[in-house]
Amino acid sequence: MTPTDPSTAPTIGRRRLLLAGLAAGTAAPWIGAQAQSYPSRPITLIVPWPAGGSTDRHLRTLAEIASKHLGQSIVIENRPGAGGTLGPATMAQTARPDGYTIAQFPLGLLRMPHMQKTAWDPLNDFTYIIGVSGYTFGLTVKADSPYKTFKDYIEAARKQPGQINYGSTGTGSSPHLLMEELAGNAKVQLTHIPFKGNADLQAALLGGHIMAQSDASGWDKYVDGGQMRLLVTFGEQRTQRWPEVPTAQELGYGVVSTSPYGLAGPKGMDPAVVKTLHDAFKKAMDDPKHMEVLGQLNQAVWYRNGEDYRKWAGETFAKDKALIERLGLAAK
Rank of each mutant, 00 (worst) to 15 (best):
H58C: 11
K159Q: 14
E250T: 12
A203N: 13
D286Y: 10
T127E: 15
F150K: 01
L109S: 02
K148D: 04
K275R: 15
P288T: 13
V273I: 15
T149C: 02
V47H: 00
Q189I: 06
G25N: 03
T55E: 13
P266G: 06
V301I: 15
T8P: 00
G314K: 03
A89K: 03
H176M: 02
P10W: 07
D220L: 01
A272C: 09
G21Y: 06
F137W: 05
Q116H: 11
T4S: 08
T90S: 13
D215V: 09
A28N: 08
K196R: 13
K289H: 13
K148M: 03
T26M: 10
Y100Q: 13
L178K: 03
D224H: 02
E180P: 01
T61H: 13
A63Q: 05
K311N: 12
M115V: 04
P246C: 11
G167P: 03
H58Y: 15
R238N: 06
L139R: 00
K282P: 08
E180Q: 14
F317C: 04
Q189V: 14
A248R: 04
Q249N: 15
R238D: 02
D224F: 02
K151E: 13
G218P: 00
V293Q: 08
G13L: 06
L277I: 12
L263Q: 07
G208R: 07
P3T: 08
D320S: 09
H209N: 15
L22H: 06
R79W: 07
A156H: 09
P243E: 02
G225Q: 05
S257R: 11
V255N: 00
E244K: 01
V274E: 05
D308A: 09
M211A: 14
K159Y: 04
V75F: 05
V47M: 01
V47R: 00
G184Q: 12
K159L: 10
P42C: 08
F195M: 08
G134F: 01
T61W: 06
G262R: 00
M269S: 09
P50I: 00
S217K: 05
T55M: 14
P122S: 09
D144T: 11
G254E: 15
A322Y: 01
R310N: 07
G162K: 12
Y253I: 04
S145K: 08
D152Q: 09
G52R: 01
G53E: 02
D152V: 11
L110M: 12
I154A: 01
K282S: 15
F317R: 03
T136I: 06
E307N: 12
S217Q: 09
G268D: 10
I324W: 05
L297A: 02
M91Y: 03
R14M: 11
F195D: 00
N305L: 07
R57L: 12
Q160N: 15
L327V: 04
Y135C: 04
A20S: 11
Y135T: 06
G268S: 10
T171A: 07
S145T: 12
A186W: 00
L18Q: 14
Q202S: 09
D5A: 13
D320P: 00
L190S: 07
I102M: 08
K267S: 13
E250Y: 05
Y147S: 02
A331T: 07
V256P: 03
I193P: 01
P146C: 04
V255D: 02
S73M: 11
P260T: 11
